[in-house]
Amino acid sequence: MNWFRDKVLPVLTVVLAIIVMWYAGAIALNAPWAYDKATRTGEKLTITTLIVDTWTQDKPKLPTPDQVLREIWKTTGAMVLKGRGWSKRSLIYHAWVTLSATVLGFALGGVFGILLAVGIVHNRAMDMSVMPWVIASQTIPILAIAPMVIVVLNAIGISGLLPKAIISMYLSFFPVVVGMVKGLRSPDRMQIDQMRTWFASRWQMFWKLRLPASMPYLFTSLKVAMAASLVGTIVGELPTGAVAGLGARLLAGSYYGQTIQIWSALIMAAVLAAILVGLIGVLQRVTLKRMGMLR
C-alpha cells in the first residue's frame, strides 16, 4: 500500500493533470475555428455546443487524446481485424519500418561504441587523441547532417534501411563510448592491484574485472543510446520524400494539415520508445541480478 501511495499515486496525479490540461488546451486552441464556423452558418454557440465542437473537429489545431487514440485504433487494431495489418496505410507497417532501422542502428552503434571504448581504455594515445573529439562531437548538432547522409548514400546506390540506420548509429554510439569508458575505468586501485598480485594478464584483467564492472554503466548508456537512435531514425525518414516510417507520417501529416495523423504517429513513436527503453531496463535487471550487482 505504501508503494501505491509513494509511487503510483503521484505519477497518476501528474498524468491526470496533463490529460485535463490537454482537453482544456483543445478547447482554447480550437475555439476560434468553432466560432468562425458558427458565424458563417449563423448559429449561436452555447458553452456545451462549443466544447462538443472543439473536441470533435476534423482538422483541429490540437486533437483530443480520445480522437488520437481512435485514429491509432483505426490504423492498427481495426486494420489487423480486417486482415490488412501490413498495408501501407496501417501504422503498424510504418512503426515496423522505423523500428527495424532503429534497432539496426542501435546495434551497430552499440558494438562500435563498445569497441572504441575498449581501445580508448587500453591505448593512451587513442585516449588522448580520440576522446576530446568524441566529447566535442556531442556538442555538435549531428542531426543536421541527416538529410545529407540520406541523399549522398542514395546517390551511390544505398537506400532503404541502411542510411537511416547509419544516422541512428552515429547518434547512439556517443553515449555508449562515454558510458563504457567510465565503466571500464570504474574498478578502483585496490581491485586492479589484487588482479596484479594474481599475475593476471591484460586480457584476464579485461574479461574478469573491467568488463563485469562496466555493466551497470553500459546499460544506463544503452538506454540513452536507444532513445537517441529512435530520434535519429525519425529525422532520417524526413528527407526521403515521406515514403514509409513514422517520420514520413509526420511529414505527410504536416503537408496535408492532418493533425490527428501527426499526433497518432507521435504517440506511436512514444510507445515505441517506451517499449524499447523498457526492454533494456528488463535486460539490465536480469543481467545485474544474475551477476549479483543489483542492490
Partner: peptide
C-alpha cells in the same frame, strides 16, 4: 525526456 519530442516540430510549425 526519453521520447522523440523532436517529432512535435510539425505541430509547432502549424501553431
Amino acid at each position: 525526456a526519453a521520447l522523440p519530442i523532436i517529432g512535435m516540430a510539425p505541430i509547432m510549425v502549424m501553431w
